[in-house]
Design a binder for these strands. Structure first.
Length: 482
RNA sequence: GGCGCCAUGGUGUAACUGGUUAACACGCCGCCCUCUCAAGGCGGAGAGUUCGGGUUCGAUCCCCGAUGGCGCUACCA
């Protein structure tokens, strides 16, 4: 037996230009697993499909991982730069008789597939090139005949593996076709490059999407042919859209960065994602909020569920409010600033006032976006009045007149605080036989432009005397929507 | 079509190796609080565990079948 080794895992996306939700969850699980055991996470870019890959395309993936706080220990490695390894591996398989040259052209294959389908036969490769003996194959190749390399799947029996999530899974060899390892242009297919790399990188656990379950026997066969020890496979169920079909653009955002752009806080997204297809055990069943450290400590392959999970935006939104609320105002500020600059908004208040306003508002924010949209009036004097709010609370001329009076009283008052502000307002209402609520609601719209805000006197306190006086005085000139 | 996997309220999940009024969270509804809206507090509706057979004194849990969903079925990954 070998000495106990720390796990080595990998996240191996293909470079599509962005990190999608499913990939992010796979990355997260690998990261949690590695961190839990003090292991190593390797980032590997599977870019053997040159048509669709370029080095720039990886930036989106890195960006997504950084946003989620997922760091890696080795890489990124690019498969496009490791071609020699794959060719050598194919050569080994060829030499040991586990693989053979195939001279069938793509067109021929397609035609035979069509015929098979028409005849109701399974559209598998008919293995005709398998009978060409090695000598003639080599000379045909040397003569310039283009050929691919296929794996020779054993005739009878079955190949299986013990999945850490799904348990024993087996496939009959009759169901596995002689898959291509090396294309005729010498570029490896996924089936070859994953195995060659996973062996070369000494990975101990393969944690990846369940869509790879059916591919796994093809890989197991190669491990065996190569005499390599099998890693532990752990397939993670897929993430589905609300209609229970695989999550795609149709369902809205699939890119992780799109959620950042929606004003989601990374901790919220990570927490949400972690709980999609995994539970930290029944001891923690009444808890939903887990810090990064909690997740690392609690993570285990045992908690991974076998059934696919539906991505639920409402739940994500809930996590987001929880996290925004729990954030320290100082820590929230840079995230909010990003929103501001994105919208070309500049706050006109002192750093201290900005922080105080954030403190006041964060318990009611649904998204970081709120700070740059509906909460503008707390950070700048340039804000808009929501027409619906004006129509609801500020259309009455008498109310506007009273707000003007209120403004004067505040201006004349010796001191200004939440409690004195409230006292002054209620007295004015009493004197005029008006309900305090009328003035309160009107003042809220005048001060914030919104019908919805924190407690009015807390708002006044956050705004300060001068702004309150000025904005109330301006109430009269707020346009009334038709 | 073939092969594989999965199946607990609308959603995410609990329910120790078969014995629970099937639990929690999101969402939804109502009430309280109240200056608005959230939040918060309280309460409620919503699944008898996809369906049908077994095994068992007893099945969400074990077995078989059906149905449904998903995945794979490329010289894509």
């Amino acid at each position: 037996m070998t000495s106990p080794t720390t796990p080595r895992v990998r996240f191996a996306p293909s470079p599509t230009g962005y990190l999608h939700v499913g990939g992010a969850r796979t990355a997260l699980f690998n990261w949690l697993f590695a961190r839990h055991f003090g292991g190593t996470l390797i980032l590997r870019i599977e870019d053997t499909d040159f048509e669709r890959s370029s080095e720039e395309m990886v930036e989106g993936i890195l960006q997504g991982m950084r946003w989620l706080g997922l760091n890696w220990d080795e890489g990124p490695f690019f498969q496009s730069q490791r071609l020699d390894l794959y060719r050598a591996t194919a050569e080994k398989l060829l030499a040991s008789g586990h693989a053979y040259h195939c001279f069938c052209t793509k067109a021929e294959l397609e035609q035979r597939r069509a015929e098979a389908a028409a005849a109701g036969r399974p559209p598998m490769y008919d293995r005709r090139c398998r009978s060409i003996d090695r000598q003639t194959a080599v000379s045909r190749k040397a003569a310039g005949a283009p050929c691919a390399v296929r794996f020779a799947v054993p005739e009878g029996g079955a190949t299986g593996f013990d999945d850490a999530v799904f348990g024993r899974v087996e496939f009959a060899h009759s169901e596995i076709e002689d898959f291509v390892l090396l294309r005729s242009d010498g570029v490896p297919t996924y089936h070859l490059s994953v195995v060659a790399d996973d062996i070369d990188m000494r990975l101990t656990h393969i944690i990846r999407g369940a869509d790879h379950i059916s591919n796994t026997p093809k890989q197991v066969l190669q491990y065996q042919a190569l005499g390599a020890t099998l890693p532990v496979f752990a397939h993670v169920p897929l993430i589905l859209g609300p209609d229970k079909t695989r999550l795609s653009k149709r369902h809205g955002a699939t890119s992780v960065i799109a959620y950042k752009d929606m004003g989601i806080v990374p901790e919220a997204f990570r927490n949400f994602l972690a709980l999609l297809g995994w539970t930290p055990g029944s001891e923690n069943k009444d808890r939903e909020i887990f810090s990064s450290d909690d997740l690392v400590q609690l993570f285990s392959l045992d908690g991974i569920s076998k059934s696919n999970a539906v991505f639920n935006n409402d739940k994500l939104a809930w996590f987001n409010t929880e996290y925004i609320r729990a954030y320290d105002a100082n820590a929230l500020l840079p995230l909010i600033q990003e929103e501001w600059t994105a919208l070309g908004f500049t706050p006109h208040r002192s750093a201290e006032d900005v922080l105080a306003a954030i403190e006041l508002l964060k318990p009611r924010a649904r998204s970081l976006k709120d700070f740059a949209t509906t909460f503008r009036a707390y950070f700048s004097d340039a804000y808009d009045y929501d027409p619906a709010a004006v129509a609801k609370f500020l259309k009455d001329d008498a109310t506007r007149k009273l707000l003007l009076q209120l403004s004067r009283r505040y201006a004349e008052a010796p001191e200004f605080s939440s409690s004195t502000a409230e006292h002054v307002l209620r007295s004015l209402a009493d004197e005029n036989g008006v309900k305090a609520g009328v003035l309160i609601n009107g003042a809220r719209v005048a001060l914030t432009g919104q019908a919805v805000a924190p407690s009015l006197f807390a708002v006044m306190n956050a705004l300060g005397k001068d702004r309150v006086v000025a904005r109330l005085a301006a109430a009269e000139s707020i346009p009334i929507p038709d």
